[in-house]
């Protein structure tokens, strides 16, 4: 989870108050501010995770069901949460399974899946030391599905996955008292970005309105 102590309530109402001070007649409500806030926070958070090698924002899901595609027979799992679309699928930090249920070691210390892609996977089968197998399994991503290679002969029911999940701006369970899952040092930057965007959005209709009015004046003049 997050390292930030500020809740969504504090940051959102700070932004709303600031916007209202400058644009008193603007029709902006807290739902809209929270939406903007989470979108911008998500972008800043993605940048932070991409730059910093840390487990602060790693979300672990230790019992994700492995399913079988009824059409192709391929093993896959569905991502349990939305993740950042980093290069080389590094939004997925790890996928593991435990070959022996009685082992004392945590699941994530057991067999880890290696990332591959559909075009690369063909080559893997050409070398014995790379060939997908229960000891050397692979995964590849297609939309929100993660397909598994090398474990087709096993009856894997569950895997553990570690993901860099993104913020959900339309979470129906969102509470204003939830922590804003963003490094606290980035909150001033977040505020600056949203206020800049707010100023742009609020000012734009006025500019447009002036153009419309000018157009009307011209029409009247031509008629006369």
């Amino acid at each position: 989870m997050a390292s930030s102590n500020a809740t969504i309530r504090y940051v959102a109402f700070d932004l709303l108050t600031t916007l209202k001070q400058n644009y008193q007649n603007a029709d902006i409500n807290i739902a809209q501010v929270v939406f903007w806030m989470l979108l911008h926070a998500d972008r800043l958070r993605k940048g932070h995770i991409g730059e910093v090698d840390s487990g602060a924002y790693l979300a672990s899901f230790n019992a994700v069901a492995v399913l079988v595609d009824t059409t192709t027979g391929r093993n896959y799992l569905v991502l349990p949460a939305s993740i950042y679309d980093f290069d080389d699928d590094t939004g997925i930090e790890y996928i593991t399974y435990q070959p022996e249920i009685d082992r004392d070691n945590p699941t994530f210390t057991s067999v880890q899946f290696t990332r591959t892609t559909i075009p690369e996977s063909r080559r893997l089968y050409m070398r014995d030391d790379e060939k997908p197998s229960p000891d050397n399994p692979y995964f590849y991503r297609v939309t929100d599905r993660i397909y598994l290679l090398g474990v087709e002969q096993l009856n894997i029911l569950l895997v553990e996955v570690g993901l860099y999940t993104s913020l959900n701006p339309i979470d129906s369970a969102l509470s204003l008292d939830d922590e804003l899952d963003l490094p606290q040092e980035l909150i001033p930057q977040l505020k600056q970005e949203i206020l800049s965007m707010g100023a742009f959005v609020i000012n734009m209709p006025n500019e447009f309105q002036i153009e419309v009015n000018q157009g009307k004046i011209n029409i009247k003049t031509n008629q006369q």
Partner: peptide, 12 residues
């Protein structure tokens, strides 16, 4: 974002 919308979390 309009008042009266039914699908928002209670807080919003």
């Amino acid at each position: 974002f309009a008042a009266g919308y039914a699908g928002l979390p209670t807080d919003l």
